[in-house]
């Protein structure tokens, strides 16, 4: 599930960007110089493979609807954590640019949600622990399913957390969670089965490929996992701590800092800070006000509860908004015509 720009606050988006960027730099550092040169084209082509593979759909048993693979765990199994993370990140970059899947600010969150968990938790901690060199079909299948499910649950949980912390949605945390987690349990089960199926089928058709990849993978991933986990958890604690501090001291995060730097935001006549905060509290506590859509009479008494409301401003906002739209369209058409004229001459 891709996170979207429109659902993120700058603070959350920025934090996730910083986190993902940090891990990208770390992985690249970890790999460069140490890995087999073969990995360079292999990573690129496998990224393209995941990209193409995600476009092939299949029927989900029992539902009749269709789905496609995510491929994060598959990459981790094939390439090992560091290379897999870079490949997943690169695929998400291309999707964000060419398909606008999520958007550019949400890209950081998406790389984190879809990359970190399979590459650094699902594969090394679960899959590797369950699958030994001589493992049979059953072990591989079970390991894939469990590792994929756990990675996806963590990913889905992160989506809920990020959205909720951004404060754009009105959905209560628990409701949101109940909506997201079970769906991803089902998705994870299918993805796990498919992942195991691919690994096993490739192994039966071309055992040499699987063996070769093991060799290539081992050139760089030997022995350093414990350190990674320590760094990872430290990173998580630090970012988490910094983030919650930031979030608690300034409820609006970056919005707040932008206000601080640039002065008062959009509605200057909002009144003094006390009423502003009061209204904020009111807004937060009144998530489910016992309120049905009013007849015109009722609305008069309700609207004063929001101090920012000024019917006069609203009307000029609407009229002005329409004007702005018209001007933007005229501006665009103007450039178009200019271009056309230039092309003619």
């Amino acid at each position: 599930m891709h996170m979207a720009d429109a659902l993120l606050s700058p603070a959350v988006g920025g934090t996730m960007w910083a986190g993902s960027l940090g891990v990208i730099v770390y992985c690249a550092k970890k790999l460069s110089g140490k890995m087999d040169e073969k990995m360079i084209p292999l990573m690129g082509v496998l990224g393209a493979f995941i990209f193409a593979g995600q476009m092939i759909n299949f029927t989900i048993p029992g539902t009749g609807s269709s789905g496609h693979i995510g491929g994060g765990m598959l990459l981790a199994i094939l390439l090992g954590p560091y290379a897999a993370f870079l490949v997943i990140a690169s695929v998400l970059v291309v999707q964000a640019l060419f398909f606008a899947d999520g958007g550019l600010l949400a890209l950081g969150a998406n790389i984190w949600n879809l990359g970190i968990y399979p590459a650094f938790i699902g594969y090394p901690l679960i899959y590797r622990a369950l699958v030994k060199k001589s493992s049979n079909t059953k072990a591989i299948t079970i390991a894939s399913i469990i590792s994929v499910i756990i990675s996806l649950q963590l990913g889905a949980f992160s989506v809920v957390l990020e959205t909720k912390l951004s404060g754009i949605t009105e959905l209560p945390f628990s409701t949101f969670l109940i909506m997201m987690q079970p769906i991803h349990l089902a998705i994870g089960l299918i993805e796990g089965i498919v992942t195991a199926g691919i690994i096993l089928y490739v192994r039966s058709l071309r055992p040499d490929i699987v063996d070769n990849l093991e060799v290539v993978k081992n050139t760089y991933s030997a022995g350093s996992l414990k350190k990674v986990l320590i760094i990872m958890s430290l990173l998580a604690i630090i970012t988490g701590g910094a983030f919650s501090w930031f979030a608690s001291t300034n409820p609006d995060g970056l919005e707040w800092s932008i206000e601080k730097i640039y002065g008062k935001p959009e509605v200057p006549e909002r009144g003094n800070p006390v009423t502003e905060n009061l209204s904020k509290i009111q807004e937060k506590t009144a998530i489910l006000p016992d309120y049905t859509f009013p007849s015109k009479g009722e609305e008069q008494e309700k609207s004063p509860s929001w101090p920012a409301v000024d019917t006069g401003t609203t009307v000029s906002g609407i009229i002005g908004g329409i004007m702005v739209l018209a001007l933007v369209i005229v501006f665009g058409m103007g450039i178009r015509i200019m271009n056309r004229n230039r092309a003619k001459t």
Binding site: I24, S32, I40, V45, G47, A52, G53, I56, V91
Partner: peptide, 22 residues
């Protein structure tokens, strides 16, 4: 990181090739 940029370039190059195969 250069490795990541190269990864993006290779990915871009082979997306069109593999999409065609797929």
């Amino acid at each position: 990181p250069k490795l990541f940029v190269i990864q993006l370039l290779f990915l871009y190059r082979y997306i069109f090739v593999l999409l065609d195969v797929a």
